[in-house]
């Protein structure tokens, strides 16, 4: 496996996962907190900055809504990035388990 993309930050990884369904900022924050059992609490400024960067890269897109709350969804490019990241995480996980012989 070549290093096609550098590793994602935990925040970006979770934001991309959260956007497999259309969500607005608050929805992203809530879902990420829920998925990580309260371990990952993303700051509003951090989410805002990440959304702007991800939009520029074309990994997510904004949905045209009539409401005041803007919703975002992941793009095909974004999904490829996430799939690649999962492979990387699996490699890390498998090697960790193999060498430490698992965690009990």
């Amino acid at each position: 496996m070549t290093q096609e993309h550098p590793p994602l930050t935990e925040g970006v990884y979770y934001i991309l996962l959260a956007l497999y369904e259309a969500r607005h900022g608050y929805g992203i924050m809530q879902l990420v907190e829920e998925m990580s059992n309260g371990r990952v609490r993303l700051g509003a400024g951090t989410i805002y900055g990440a959304i702007k960067t991800l939009l520029e890269r074309g990994w997510i897109e904004a949905l045209d809504g009539d409401g005041r709350k803007k919703e975002y969804i992941i793009t095909e490019t974004g999904k490829t990035v996430v799939e690649y990241e999962i492979l990387r995480l699996r490699e890390l996980f498998d090697n960790g388990i193999r060498i430490t012989r698992g965690v009990e």
């Binding site: 609490r41 700051g43 400024g45």
Partner: peptide
């Protein structure tokens, strides 16, 4: 409550 939650931001 934090505005920025990770080192890079």
């Amino acid at each position: 409550f934090e505005i920025f939650s990770d080192a890079s931001s």
